[in-house]
C-alpha cells in the first residue's frame, strides 16, 4: 500500500522542517557546501543495501553516519579544515554509487520517488523528523555558542567536540530521511537553501530558526503537490521551490536596506 497524498504531504512537511532547522546551523558554521554535497555519500550505501535486499534508507543512514564521523574526525584532528578533501571524497562516493546501483533503482535513488513510499515508512519518517527537531532544539544554544567561539564555549563548560558530533549525526539522519523524497543528488539542497533564505530575513535566532523550519516545510509541501500533479520527480521541484523562496527573500533583504 502506498501512502495517500495527505500522508505524503505530512511526511514532506516533517522532513522539510527538520532539514531546514538542522541546515540553519550548517550555514552559520560556514559549511554550506559540505552540507550540500553530503547527500551524495548516501548513494553507495543505498546501492549496497539494495544488493543485500534491505531497506535503502538503512544503507543511506549507515553511509551518511560514516561520512559525518569522518568530517567530525577531520575537524578535530586537523588545524586547516580540508574542504577540498571532503569535496573529492563526496564526488567519488557519488560516482561509485552510480556505477554499483542496479539500473532500475538508479533514477529513484538519484531523484527520489513518491510513488514508492508506504504508510509505515511515512509514519516512521514523521516520527524521526520530530525527534530530530526536538534533539536539535535541546542542543541549539550550546551548538550556537560552539559555532561563534569554541574558546568561549569550552570555558563555559560546553563539551564542544561532543556537541559537534551529535549535530553532525543529526544532519546525517535528516539527509537519510530526505533521500526518499528528494533523491541523493539534491537532498543536501533541502538542508541548505531554506536556511539561507531564512538568514536573509532574520535578525534574531528565534526568527531564524522558525523561518528555516517554515521554508523547509513549505518547499517540501509545495514541491510534493506539484510533483504529484505533474508526475515529474519530486527532487528538482522541491529544490526549485526553495530556490524561489531564497530569491524572494534576497530581494526583500536588498529592499529593506
Amino acid at each position: 500500500m502506498t501512502a495517500s497524498l495527505l500522508f505524503l504531504l505530512l511526511t514532506g512537511a516533517a522532513v522539510g522542517a527538520a532539514a531546514g532547522y538542522l541546515g540553519s546551523f550548517m550555514i552559520l558554521k560556514r559549511m554550506s557546501l559540505v552540507g550540500d554535497a553530503l547527500s551524495h555519500v548516501a548513494l553507495p550505501g543505498m546501492a549496497i543495501a539494495i544488493m543485500w535486499h534491505t531497506s535503502p534508507i538503512i544503507g543511506a543512514l549507515a553511509a551518511l553516519t560514516l561520512a559525518v564521523i569522518g568530517i567530525w574526525h577531520l575537524q578535530n584532528h586537523s588545524s586547516v579544515y580540508p574542504d577540498a578533501l571532503v569535496g573529492i571524497f563526496f564526488t567519488a562516493s557519488l560516482s561509485i554509487g552510480i556505477l554499483i546501483t542496479p539500473q532500475p533503482d538508479l533514477l529513484e535513488a538519484l531523484f527520489g520517488d513518491l510513488a514508492t513510499i508506504s504508510v509505515p515508512e511515512s509514519l516512521l519518517a514523521v516520527f524521526f523528523s520530530l525527534v530530530l527537531i526536538a534533539v536539535t532544539y535541546i542542543i541549539s544554544r550550546r551548538l550556537l555558542l560552539t559555532t561563534i567561539s569554541e574558546d568561549l564555549a569550552t570555558t563555559s563548560g560546553i563539551p564542544v567536540s561532543k556537541i559537534n558530533l551529535i549535530y553532525y549525526l543529526l544532519v546525517g539522519a535528516v539527509v537519510a530521511l530526505g533521500v526518499k523524497f528528494v533523491g541523493t543528488l539534491l537532498t543536501g539542497a533541502l538542508v541548505i537553501i531554506p536556511a539561507a533564505a531564512a538568514k536573509n530575513l532574520s535578525r534574531s535566532l528565534t526568527a531564524y530558526s522558525l523561518l528555516s523550519i517554515f521554508f523547509g516545510l513549505a518547499s517540501a509541501v509545495i514541491g510534493v503537490l506539484i510533483a504529484r500533479s505533474t508526475g515529474v520527480a519530486p527532487g528538482p521541484i522541491v529544490v526549485l521551490t526553495s530556490v524561489t523562496f531564497f530569491l524572494v527573500t534576497l530581494v526583500l533583504k536588498s529592499l529593506s536596506r
Partner: peptide
C-alpha cells in the same frame, strides 16, 4: 541572526 539578549541567554 543573534540578538545581544539571545547571546546572554547562553
Amino acid at each position: 541572526p543573534l540578538t545581544v539578549a539571545e547571546f546572554f541567554s547562553f
